[in-house]
Design a binder for these strands. Structure first.
Lengths: 254, 254
DNA sequence: CTTTGAAAAGTTGTCATACAAGATTACATA
DNA sequence: TATGTAATCTTGTATGACAACTTTTCAAAG
């Protein structure tokens, strides 16, 4: 019975399209106290009035809120804040990828996962999955010999292991993290390519993972994967990531 | 110099608003071969013509594509498919949460993380963070005594541990997973509440985690957290999740 | 023939208006 | 008081217009 709560039109972002700004403002209001879960947003017409924009802009902003899972709209009734639930996606703000430390934090997340993934893969892999893993490992060598940078093959390799867990969420999450780390990985590999010794090191790390999974030794697989990741992290830390990112068109901080 | 590639208007979803359908169709086209990264989508006017809808609908669909990180638009120039990068969010389709197995897969993901989180927390926690963890543990007991279901306090507890890792991504990811598992957790706790022995069991599991973190024993923390999660998983598996979800208004499969 | 520069055309961003479709509210009537 | 229907409100969609910006075209200058 309570009427639509009043809300402050505060702090409209100064940059970007009007839709961007309204979206940001509404996101703030929803994440704040102004519109708790279940609350109804003011009508599009009212919001247009308050924000001083057209209904078109409001609708596009709301459309994005829907996409983010923050609200849901019911024709004839209104737009309602979703009950803080399972529709909100997991995001990593790309603009944080501007420091070595930030990248390493994502690497650390991946590292944690790779260990568990390897262990689960060791426990559950089928014969077919094992074959796929070995194929992927072989492909890495082939790529190396033919002068490819090896990133794609590397991703296929780790993905084949994630698939062997039998849990699709591991695969999905790993792929998501790859999106962030692809370029960083490329760094490492190309860096390594200039040093045969290091490349050999990586090869051995890979082989240890595969062997452990092959003989279904959970603990060894976890350890091998973790060591591989730690090695990657160490190698990554030794290049000037910041300069690399600038050269490769990474986005600036907002 | 190549002209805008032709595209098939295929398989427009049969349900939902026009915006939903166009969004789905465009998503398919982008994920397929039709619009590779870097490609420019046809102009909004052309798409409106092809799909047989107004430009309004196209714009709202594109607005959602932007929100998903699939495309970016440049005024005066066009809408371009982003090259596979870091803007795509990680999602778990809520509609898969309809079977016990699916829920357990998410639980397994969380389980893997909790172990690593506990280990990292043991390694890095500050004195302040340790105090926060102990406060959170105490709050769980208080809530239990005052008859609360304890879910909120439980979340705060695990969150305080994730914070102690010093890596914000762990916290963000754990919170994301909580969104899926909150109700499932509630199940377990309320189930446990009816059995003092089980509740005691959980209390001991919690205590072991805290102790290990307190004395900065990485391995013990990992083991304790993993055992706690395995226990939760076991307890979760023993209730009729499907019926519970139906009673608690979980969404139906689309 | 090449370069230059400005007009023309194309595209996204924003506004305004209108009506359709569904939901809610108000109110007259039984 | 209960009921059903009209009035009203809200979101969904369509259309037309113009602003802001980019790309293309093409004629004039060198």
């Amino acid at each position: 019975m309570a009427s639509t709560p009043e809300f402050r039109v505060e702090r409209i972002t100064a940059t970007g399209t009007l839709t961007d700004r309204v979206f940001d403002a509404l996101t703030q209001l929803i994440n704040g106290e102004d519109f708790p879960p279940g609350a109804r947003l003011p009508s599009e017409l009212k919001m247009a009035g308050r924000f001083g924009v057209s209904r078109t802009v409001i609708r596009e902003a709301v459309s994005r809120l829907k996409s983010e899972g923050l609200v849901e709209s019911r024709q004839g009734s209104g737009v309602f804040v979703r009950d803080r639930n399972m529709h909100a996606p997991f995001r990593i703000n790309p603009s944080i990828m501007d420091s070595i430390q930030s990248v390493l934090q994502v690497v650390e997340l991946r590292m944690s996962l790779e260990g568990e993934i390897a262990a689960l893969a060791a426990k559950r892999r089928t014969r077919e999955q094992m074959a796929a893993i070995k194929r992927a490992l072989k492909q890495i060598e082939l790529d190396e010999q033919s002068g490819e940078n090896g990133v794609d093959a590397d991703i296929v390799f780790h993905r084949s292991i994630a698939e062997a867990t039998g849990n699709p969420h591991f695969l999905a999450l790993i792929e998501f993290l790859f999106n962030f780390l692809t370029k960083a990985t490329l760094i490492t590999r190309s860096y390594e390519a200039t040093r045969a010794a290091l490349s050999q090191q990586v090869k051995e790390e890979h082989q240890r993972i595969v062997d452990a999974i092959s003989r279904q030794d959970e603990q060894a697989a976890r350890t091998a994967a973790r060591e591989h990741m730690e090695g990657a992290s160490r190698r990554l830390g030794s290049v000037d990531l910041k300069r690399f990112m600038a050269q490769n068109g990474y986005e600036k901080v907002d």
